[in-house]
């Protein structure tokens, strides 16, 4: 049984069909990335899984249980860190668990130490850099008791160097604390570097356009970015996104060219 099953989801806002017949699934402890141009309804997918919105049609199941309209079934890391400024780092990372009524202070302190935030346990978010804030937000998601973590373009607001640092950091932490991860990004390299599987979605209406198993062994390090095989894969995924674009309007086409390349 898949950990998360999204089956034939349809969602429209008024006359706009945002998701038409979207289906995918994630296995336990798998790292899956959804990649697609901006405006392809990625946030809508999260809002549906998170239970903030309900689909017009289709099935969403977590470990076999229906979670349509049920909030709090997943743990979430948003695009902006969204840390509460009046709480210390420690109190912030405990927030997700606190909402579910299960706090583990010692584990939180241990994880903050592992994450290189030992000096900032009792600091307030305003004292942290952008990258550190995102680390705190990720640990908050890891400490939440839910088994599936959804990450919504968590590194898109960071600069290039910090982003690479964060990607490596995320992998190392994830390899220590294995969880099922659903990651959304619009960077092909980020997707290839991090995930086990990549799901490419098309824009308007949103559906799965292609799926790739990423063959690289773990643990991975940054030398992978220059690997021949990696570049070949990057080309393949880029083409699949571009083909998606050519079927649609010119705007979508332009979007695919704006993808980051080092």
């Amino acid at each position: 049984m898949s950990h998360l099953l999204v089956d034939h989801i349809v969602k429209s806002f008024g006359p706009n069909e945002v998701l038409s017949d979207l289906s995918f699934s994630i296995e336990k402890e798998e790292f899956v990335t959804i990649i697609g141009p901006s405006g392809s309804g990625k946030s809508t997918i999260f809002n549906l899984i998170g239970g903030i919105m309900t689909p017009d049609k289709g099935i969403i199941q977590l470990e076999g249980n229906n979670i349509i309209g049920k909030r709090g079934s997943i743990s979430f890391m948003p695009q902006t860190p969204s840390l509460l400024p009046w709480r210390t780092v420690l109190q912030n990372v405990l927030l997700g668990a606190e909402l579910q009524g299960k706090k583990d202070r010692d584990k939180a302190i241990e994880m903050l130490h592992k994450a290189g935030l030992a000096d900032y346990v009792h600091a307030r978010p305003e004292e942290l850099s952008g990258g550190m804030k995102q680390r705190v937000a990720f640990i908050r998601a890891l400490l939440s008791p839910q088994s599936l973590i959804c990450l919504d373009e968590p590194f898109s607001a960071l600069d290039e160097l910090t982003r690479l640092e964060m990607q490596k950091w995320l992998l190392s932490i994830w390899e220590d604390y294995r969880r099922t991860v659903l990651f959304v990004t619009h960077s092909i390299e980020e997707a290839l570097f991090l995930s086990d599987r990549i799901i490419v979605i098309s824009v308007k209406p949103t559906k799965v356009a292609a799926e790739f198993e990423v063959p690289f062994n773990r643990p991975r390090d940054e030398s992978l970015f220059l690997d021949e095989e990696f570049l070949k894969w990057k080309r393949t995924v880029t083409y699949s996104l571009k083909n998606e674009g050519s079927d649609n309007d010119g705007e979508a086409n332009r979007r695919t060219y704006s993808f980051r390349s080092i």
Binding site: N47, I52, T80, S82, L84, L99, C150
Partner: peptide, 26 residues
């Protein structure tokens, strides 16, 4: 209260009273 904070709290499963006391009031 910024939308991003509220969105996080809702996604993380905060109830109406949790949303109020842990986010909106402070």
């Amino acid at each position: 209260v910024p939308y991003s904070h509220k969105h996080y709290m809702l996604m993380a499963g905060a109830g109406k009273s949790q949303l109020f006391w842990k986010l909106e009031w402070p």
